[in-house]
Simulated assay, not measured.
Amino acid sequence: MMAIPLMKKLNVLVPHWIEHNDEHIAEMEKYLHALDAEGQKELAQHCRDVIAQMTAVSEKLTVMAQQLKPISLRG
């Protein structure tokens, strides 16, 4: 079995991680709105904090993706 080179893996994984994290952010935002609607101020604030941190992660991953050198994913 041949090992997949690191850069080839990262060119696939980093965009996937961004997409996956952004999906989680969107889901958390739904819960944030529900918490706000129920008057759960403290939990809503924690949720906002988590969303902010997850957004920062997506931003860092985007920078990482921009710094990856494009490579052929074939072969």
Rank of each mutant, 00 (worst) to 15 (best):
Q53E: 14
I25M: 01
H16D: 07
H46C: 09
H33G: 02
D36A: 04
E19Q: 08
E29N: 06
H16E: 09
D49M: 13
M2S: 15
L13R: 06
L10S: 06
Q40H: 13
M1T: 12
P70V: 05
L35I: 01
V14C: 03
M64R: 04
K9P: 06
H20N: 03
A3G: 05
K69E: 15
Q45R: 11
R74K: 15
A37M: 07
E38D: 12
L35K: 03
Q66A: 15
A34E: 14
I4E: 12
C47Q: 08
W17I: 01
Q53V: 13
A56F: 06
T62F: 00
L13A: 11
M28S: 12
L32N: 06
R74G: 14
L32I: 03
Q53S: 15
A44R: 02
K69L: 13
I25G: 03
M64H: 09
V63P: 06
Q53Y: 13
K60Q: 07
L6H: 03
V12Y: 08
I4V: 15
M7P: 04
A34K: 09
P70Q: 09
E38H: 14
P15W: 00
N11K: 08
M1P: 12
T55Y: 06
I18Y: 00
Q53F: 13
E19M: 01
H16V: 06
H46R: 13
A65H: 08
M28F: 15
Q40S: 13
M54G: 08
A65E: 12
E59I: 03
I4L: 11
A37N: 09
E42C: 02
V57Y: 09
H20W: 02
E27W: 11
A26I: 03
D49N: 14
I25N: 07
L43F: 13
L43H: 07
I4S: 02
S72C: 10
E29S: 02
D49C: 06
S72R: 14
L43R: 07
R48I: 08
E19A: 05
G39D: 02
H46V: 10
I51M: 06
K9T: 15
S58G: 07
L13M: 12
M2E: 14
H33M: 07
E38Q: 12
E38N: 11
D36Q: 14
D49A: 10
S72H: 09
K9E: 15
V63C: 06
K8E: 11
D49G: 15
K60V: 06
